[in-house]
Each structure stands twice: as C-alpha cells, then as structure tokens.
C-alpha cells in the first residue's frame, strides 16, 4: 500500500512536471521568437574590437541574466537517460532557452542605452544547486550574457 502511494506521488509529480513544464517551455519559446524579432536591430558580435570605420559616442557594459529551473519530469527523464548516456534532450531545450533569454535581456539593456551593437559578447552558465550530497537538490542554471554596447555617434 505504501508502495502504491509512493508510486502514485511520483506519477503525480511527473504528470505535473510534464504538463506544466511543457506548457511553460512552449510559451517561453514563443515569447523568445517574438522578442528576438523585435530586437533584431541590436547586433551582437563576439569580436573584441569594434570596426575602425565607425564612430561611437559611448560604450556601456550591458548584462542580461536569467535563471531557469528544471521541472520534475525533466529531472526524472534526465536521470533515466543518464543511465544509458546520450543526448540529454530534456536539458538541451532548457539550456537553449536560458542562453537565448539571456541574450534577449542583454539586447534590451543595450537598446535602452541607445546602442545599436554589442561587442565582445560572452555567455556564461552557472549551476545553482545545493551541495552534491543532497540528492533532492533542484537543478537550476543561471545564464548570463554580457558585452560592450556601443552607441553610434550619428544617433541624435
């Protein structure tokens, strides 16, 4: 009986994670697509040096960061997959969302500063979790994108 309750709880959590996690992910991807379209005018470069033939009025460090957590379904699916190895597709989409959201937020910061380009863009990821001894620790990752936003000189 206890066993049935235990399995029931796990199944319920899995279902919860599956339904809400997938809905949240789908919504997030839709929003990302929109925001990226709107922010297309802000160009990002990994290049360290701005082009010599352009004049800039100012430079500013812009940062965009986001923390994204897994859902229960992703956790179980990933732990199951890690038994046999291979692509952790459950986390691939999570990491993708994180990186894109961080860039979007960085671009928003740049646009507010009146910049049209961001140079030397870097993305870093940090894992947020309790100590490794705690198996129940939640997996969440912080994504931070930063770069130097340049405000063009010809801008009013």
């Amino acid at each position: 009986m206890e066993l049935i309750i235990q399995f029931g709880v796990i199944a319920f959590l899995l279902l919860l994670g599956l339904v809400f996690g997938r809905a949240a992910e789908a919504r997030h991807f839709r929003e990302l697509k929109q925001k990226e379209l709107i922010l297309r005018q802000v160009l990002v470069f990994s290049e360290k040096h701005p082009p010599a033939d352009q004049e800039f009025r100012g430079a500013k460090l812009v940062v965009g960061s986001v923390v994204i957590a897994e859902d229960y379904f992703k956790r179980i699916a990933a732990s199951l997959k890690s038994l046999v190895g291979g692509r952790l597709t459950a986390y691939e989409s999570l990491m993708d969302r994180g990186r894109r959201e961080a860039i979007v937020r960085m671009k928003q910061a740049a646009r507010e500063a009146g910049a049209s380009m961001i140079f030397n863009v870097r993305i870093e990821t940090a894992r947020l979790s309790e100590s490794d001894s705690n198996r129940q620790a939640l997996f969440a990752a912080e994504f931070i994108a930063y770069g130097t936003a340049l405000v063009p000189a010809n801008r009013p």
Binding site: I76, R87, T89, E92
Partner: peptide
C-alpha cells in the same frame, strides 16, 4: 534555433527508457 533542440519527443524517449 531549432537545430539545437532535438525534434524527438522527450516523452516518447522517457517512456521508451
């Protein structure tokens, strides 16, 4: 962006595993 994300259903893979 879709190239980064597997087209395979995570649920189907989960059930198979």
């Amino acid at each position: 962006h879709e190239v980064n994300v597997s087209r395979e259903s995570v649920l189907a893979e989960f059930l198979r595993l």
